[in-house]
Computed example of a mutant assay.
Amino acid sequence: MKNFMMGVMMFLTCTTTSMAQGFKEPEYIGQVSLVQSANSQVILEKEEAEMKTKTSGFGYIPIPGSSLLDKGKTFLRVKGESSPNKVAKGKVQFVVRVKDHNEDPKTTIGVFQFEAKKKERRFMLAEVGVLSGLKATTSFNTVAYEVEKFGESSFLVTISDAAPGEYGVTTTDFGHISTFSVK
């Protein structure tokens, strides 16, 4: 009887705690919901992204060896000056729905800050130069975050001190990125 009562108490505690949180997992894999308060959340709008490569143009000069000076940069680019999703600076939390909890969240969830331009936001994925020994430098300036399991197949991601700027969150699809602006 004592074990039964202890089990009932634990069940009620867990149920009350999950109800007190007030937010839940997003419905579909890859969706990201922003936690606005203890009982409010909103699904972040996904924006279409494309990969764009820019070169320095030295390869077009008809002088032997000029192509050795050529340098290329590959960017992940989203149109528009800022995200439609706005957040106050400081602590930012969101729930990311994934396939399951068996994968390392630090490898399946990418959180990064865009470089904001007039008509686009972009994130440099790689830079390649021939004179540097054909060395490709990949710069994933990911934002530091804490993560914990949430629900059946989601993770609760917390950025403890988000600075003002444009951010992107992705799981597996780099063609559609959940974005938000910190003001």
Rank of each mutant, 00 (worst) to 15 (best):
V87G: 00
A144Q: 09
Y60W: 07
R77L: 15
K118P: 10
F112K: 01
E152G: 04
I159S: 10
K89N: 14
G65H: 01
K79G: 14
L134K: 12
S33G: 13
Q36G: 08
P64K: 06
N39G: 10
L68F: 11
G57S: 01
K119I: 09
S56T: 13
F140V: 10
Y60R: 12
D70W: 04
N141Y: 01
T138E: 14
A144H: 11
S153C: 10
E115V: 09
R77G: 04
S132L: 04
V143P: 04
I43W: 05
R97M: 06
K117S: 14
K79S: 15
Q41H: 06
G59W: 07
G72E: 10
T108D: 12
V130N: 09
T158E: 03
G133D: 00
A163Y: 06
A88H: 08
E148Y: 07
L44M: 15
L44Y: 01
F150E: 05
V92H: 05
K46E: 14
P64A: 06
D70S: 07
Y145N: 03
T142E: 15
Y145T: 03
V35D: 04
V128T: 08
E45R: 05
V95K: 01
V32Q: 14
V130F: 10
K73E: 13
A38R: 10
V98W: 04
S154R: 00
V130E: 10
V96L: 08
V32Y: 01
